[in-house]
Design a protein around this nucleic acid. Sequence first.
DNA 1: CATTACTCTACTAATAGAATAGGGAATATA
DNA 2: TATATTCCCTATTCTATTAGTAGAGTAATG
Lengths: 153, 153
Amino acid sequence: MLSKKSKYALRALLALARRPSEGPVLISELAEQEGIPKKFLELILLELKNNGILQSKKGKGGGYFLGRKPDAISLGEVIRVLDGPLAPLPCVSQTAYHACEECGDEATCGIRAVMKDVRDATSTILDRESLADVLRRTERLQQEKKKVLVYAI
Amino acid sequence: MLSKKSKYALRALLALARRPSEGPVLISELAEQEGIPKKFLELILLELKNNGILQSKKGKGGGYFLGRKPDAISLGEVIRVLDGPLAPLPCVSQTAYHACEECGDEATCGIRAVMKDVRDATSTILDRESLADVLRRTERLQQEKKKVLVYAI
DNA sequence: CATTACTCTACTAATAGAATAGGGAATATA
DNA sequence: TATATTCCCTATTCTATTAGTAGAGTAATG
């Protein structure tokens, strides 16, 4: 399960991605807009900044802004920063590999083989989908919903 | 990440699946063979039994045995019993759905759409792969390893 | 009826998740 | 250069979950 940290991070990043380079945005503004505890969001944004996903500016007129374009920030990257590896087992993680204790032989472990498939499927999706993709999906879903409403009249 | 509970459960179940209907197997035997704390394994096997994956027999000559054939027990089912839903968000779980708090509109949530893809990909794999499949995979991997060794001579 | 072996509830320790608190450091601007 | 603004950083708290332990209870067998 995704932690609240990751969920909050994604919501905040999407909120930033939705504003076309309006300049730095205040933590408090994002927190209020997205209904996230301000101090908690502070930690999250800081961690995103320390990992190059966000940039910041201090003092008056300061705030946070995206470190890259929305189509160059993948959900996988964000989730890895806040929740750690996507893999269901450490022995199939590409970004944080370490051997399972007590695993007789990794090369012939059937569980590992299946979990590697799971990892690959997950990261294929999450590393492909960017903030921009998610925004596009949201728009498309909103338009579909509108259509359904029109038909319903 | 998979919990130790799930990992232990899978190992114990695979150990049972490897024995062709040898009759009930003692908890203590499984625990020793797989290097799992006995009392902890006790809880796990009990839970698997209460969910129809295992059956048991009490008293002398008793023990645990599979409730169904190894090809009718999927990894997904086992993991759901011990770790809960596979879905990364409750709002995309098929087996344990509940709405995310504070989610404005589920129907148009882009994050949800991506996470639904992740859930589908994960459960497609884990609900398809059975204990029997995992054993077959292990065998295949062992044979490949042998081949490599032969070539290396 | 005694032994074997699962059943069940309760308890504990350690870790991770979800915050909260508060001072410090940098920046803009008056 | 003083001051308000805003991010930066460390520490602490509270709660839930994970991992494991303990021990009495129940059912089956011989």
